[in-house]
Design a protein around this nucleic acid. Structure first.
Lengths: 186, 186
DNA sequence: CTTTTATTTCTCTTTCTACAGAAATATCCG
DNA sequence: CGGATATTTCTGTAGAAAGAGAAATAAAAG
């Protein structure tokens, strides 16, 4: 168990793990999960739960659960290692693939439930006599927005990652190419 | 204070507020903040802190802090009401504008700190003798990705919202227009 | 079948966060 | 200035989440 008091004393690798873990919390992912992910992301070889537990100094059980969660996100996967019956794990190392997996997960967890909720509200709102018309139209605008965003993200998440990266690297050139460029002519 | 036990008994408006609050938690925003935002979003007139506190049944102090947070995100703003010295608030009601404000906030809170962290790591990693080359290159790929994503989001967040909505409504038509369409030719 | 080793589930403790209510501060009016 | 009203800051608490360690289960080897 590596006793670390000051992050500035640590290796680049541990720093990355530590920062990533911290970022995770900011993000809504818990620290252990994020740290394990970071560790596997930097690792050149598959690791088993015990190695992870030792290297990060977090409880074996905690590692087990975190690994399960990461597998659920498909950010890591099990790999068999010859002559060792313990399960080993490797991370998805393509950063674009990672980003898409995360985006997909977030969409499922954030946009989809929002859509379900707003559908219920709008459905009830349209034939509720007491409701102020302003409130109704705001709900409908929100619904419309969510539908658009939902469709859009579905489409974008099906674009092969190489093209997505191209698109993003083009940046606002896309806009001029589409002849809708121009500056702040809102 | 409206005692509500079952969400299905409530008006469309309260349902929206309740769901939105719940969604907020999923999202990383706390419930009070999300509920207040929802309430103001549906409200046809400016509201003061006390009205909000009563209508939602949450403590006055809590409302005060939540309002401050929402103002920070620019999702709501103070408006003066003639003949009343209390502060009143209205929400941004354009959903696209809202979405952009939220995206901007998230970028600042999520991408920017990640970039700062990774810069530190990479800087140290390049001249750290013991570090495995695989780890170094993974860090660099991540950095490269973050820089790209950062630039892209800066550009997109400066596009006027009308054009953004157009772009999203076009969806994958953009790809074919750019002649990079095609299906899964990754 | 028994022993050893790996993994998961369970429970308890610790840590954080949300939030209420009280206290303090600021603002406005007569 | 003094009283009233509005707002913010402070403090304590309840509930949720994270994580450790033990107990239970599963899998493999001999």
């Amino acid at each position: 168990m590596t006793e670390i008091t000051d992050i500035s004393d640590s290796s680049a690798k541990s720093k990355f793990v530590l920062y990533w873990g911290d970022m995770g919390s900011q993000w809504g992912v818990n620290r252990s999960v994020a740290q394990i992910h970071a560790l596997l992301f930097l690792s050149e070889a598959p690791m088993n739960a015990e190695q992870i537990s030792e290297e990060l100094g977090i409880a074996r059980s905690n590692v087990s659960n975190s690994l399960k969660e990461l597998v659920g996100w498909r950010l890591i996967r099990r790999v068999p290692v010859a002559g060792d019956r313990r399960e080993h794990f490797v991370a998805e190392t393509d950063v674009w693939e990672m980003a898409m997996l995360i985006a997909k997960g977030r969409k499922e967890r954030e946009i989809d439930p929002a859509m379900r909720a707003i559908d219920i509200c709008v459905k009830q709102a349209v034939d509720e006599p007491g409701l102020h018309p302003v409130a109704l139209s705001r709900m409908q605008e929100m619904q419309d927005f969510l539908v658009t965003a939902d469709r859009w993200s579905d489409q974008m998440l099906n674009v092969p990652k190489s093209k997505l990266s191209m698109l993003m690297k083009m940046g606002d050139k896309v806009l001029t190419l589409l002849k809708i460029g121009g500056k702040k002519t809102d």
